[in-house]
Design a binder for these strands. Sequence first.
DNA 1: CGTGGCGTTGATTAACCTCAAATGTGGTGG
DNA 2: CCACCACATTTGAGGTTAATCAACGCCACG
Lengths: 244, 244
Amino acid sequence: MSHPAPLFTAGRCGDCPIRHRAVCAQCDDGELAVLDKLKTYRSFPAGQTIAWAGDPLDFVASVVTGVAILSRTLEDGRTQMVGLLLPSDFLGRPGHATVTYTVTAVTDVLMCCFRRQPFEALLHTMPHLAMQLLEMTLDDLQSAREWMLLLGRKTAREKIASLLVSLARREAALRLNPPEGRVEIDLMLTREAMADYLGLTLETVSRQFTGLRQDGLIRLNGTRRVIVPDFARLQRAAQEDAAA
Amino acid sequence: MSHPAPLFTAGRCGDCPIRHRAVCAQCDDGELAVLDKLKTYRSFPAGQTIAWAGDPLDFVASVVTGVAILSRTLEDGRTQMVGLLLPSDFLGRPGHATVTYTVTAVTDVLMCCFRRQPFEALLHTMPHLAMQLLEMTLDDLQSAREWMLLLGRKTAREKIASLLVSLARREAALRLNPPEGRVEIDLMLTREAMADYLGLTLETVSRQFTGLRQDGLIRLNGTRRVIVPDFARLQRAAQEDAAA
DNA sequence: CGTGGCGTTGATTAACCTCAAATGTGGTGG
DNA sequence: CCACCACATTTGAGGTTAATCAACGCCACG
């Protein structure tokens, strides 16, 4: 794993790269000033486990930079990723002291943290905060349900195609241009991490990548950079609605 | 399907069977009076589709009695259930005019409905409403993530056992006694509905039921009533933590 | 120049799906 | 009451997909 230092270093909320997408997005200047005083930044190196399933987590946080994964594991080691934390995503459950999944930094991660108890109090006094968290949680729920369709009913090939489509969409969302035509995607995940996300084995993931490559749906630049010549064709391979 | 008339007929919020678990649970008497004036009851017969995926839904609602399912379908007909609505569960997404899944009544269903726009306004003026909805959505998200582990990583046998455990838990939760020892479970679902929930085919569901029966983990009374002689053993077959 | 992490590929197997047929089961109308 | 129908469920045979087990290549790094 590479270890570039986070580009954004602790600063004012006004300068924050996730200011308009994170849990604080709807807050006004006065509310932001309060948050500014309570926040602390924490960084985690790539590969580090931020919290174990079942363990207490005494803070809640927004991801400022980097990528982290949420996963659950059965006793015999089978693991399933249940969520992906990208910049602006929120970690932690107000009102609950423990997390039910393991949180792991995939890249170096910078988080904007609040101690749990004071944050819960703020939720009750700042309606903007609660409403934004509700909105974000509803988004997460919708994503989780789409993922259930993928896990339960899609073939290995469709799963891989869906993952690529979804990554392209999330990346494009930051730039406000929906993906079309030729698209490039940066995989921040290993084959094993993708397997855990998709409910497959890493061998199957690898085979499906070569399958998609042989069929001309993708080209590979190294192992982590994917070039999609025709995004619409990939969408069809993913069995996705053009919308969503 | 049987068509018993709903036992609860339109009445005051104070008499409502889901008063203390639904989205209105945290509301005080004054707030409840407001809701009381805006609410309307609607009932749906067993088997009826309440809303199609992608269609506009002009109301939000709480399930008062009955069971409904949320499902998504691929173009070729493969379908995956993505949620189960039991009494007190909430339907609809404030801020969004359409639903992304199909909603179908499994039994006769009675719903306590609010027109969407006025309800969204209430959300901003009644913090108790928003907080309860947030709490319920976080619960749904957690359930969805547990389901992702099941769909992605569990075997057919473990899936069936997990479903039975989960149904026993939800039933027991209403009576505040955690399931243990001998337990009986009423399946309100057909084999096909279970298959759609678990990401299996109905034949596999049927085979696993006979497998569990032959191994003495369950006994069947008719096709819809399951007797579990030893709940802890079923939990182990489901690869579940005793907790949760 | 080894070593360990990551990725690809091949051979085999096990789990689950598909297709097909038989067996209940409850409700309806004669 | 019984014949009949629609539908849910079970069971069987055979096929497919993806998992498992195993070997090997690549590359960064000490």
